[in-house]
């Protein structure tokens, strides 16, 4: 199983145990956070979660930031990725904020 050992080697280099702990805790946190949500907040919560996965923009910044300045193909795609990631983050948070504003207004 050369394949498997290569895979294990790769994972060890990423400090597999740290990642496992992060994975485990994050999965349970996600479940825990959602389980007691009243139905009225389902839509804002989904929208908020949608904004949070916009964190993928960080990956696009990293890949863009380490692309050779003359690799126009990668630069174009990277540029597009950063635009789309930003759309996800900004749009997501603004839409969520607008929804929640409505709940707040009426409390006054």
């Amino acid at each position: 199983m050369i394949l498997l050992s290569e895979f294990q080697g790769f994972l060890t280099s990423l400090d597999i145990w740290d990642i496992c702990f992060i994975l485990l805790l994050a999965i349970f946190l996600g479940i825990e956070v959602i389980s007691n949500v009243p139905a009225i907040l389902h839509t804002p919560l989904m929208s908020g979660a949608n904004a949070i996965h916009g964190v993928v923009i960080i990956g696009s910044i990293i890949v863009m930031g380490h692309t050779a300045p003359d690799n126009y193909f990668a630069l174009t795609l990277g540029f597009l990725a950063v635009v789309l990631g930003t759309l996800n983050v900004v749009g997501g948070f603004v839409v969520t904020n607008r929804m929640l504003q409505m709940f707040k207004k009426k409390k006054q």
Partner: peptide, 9 residues
């Protein structure tokens, strides 16, 4: 962030 949204979603 990704896993949190993945499991919550």
């Amino acid at each position: 962030g990704g896993i949190l949204v993945g499991s919550a979603g």
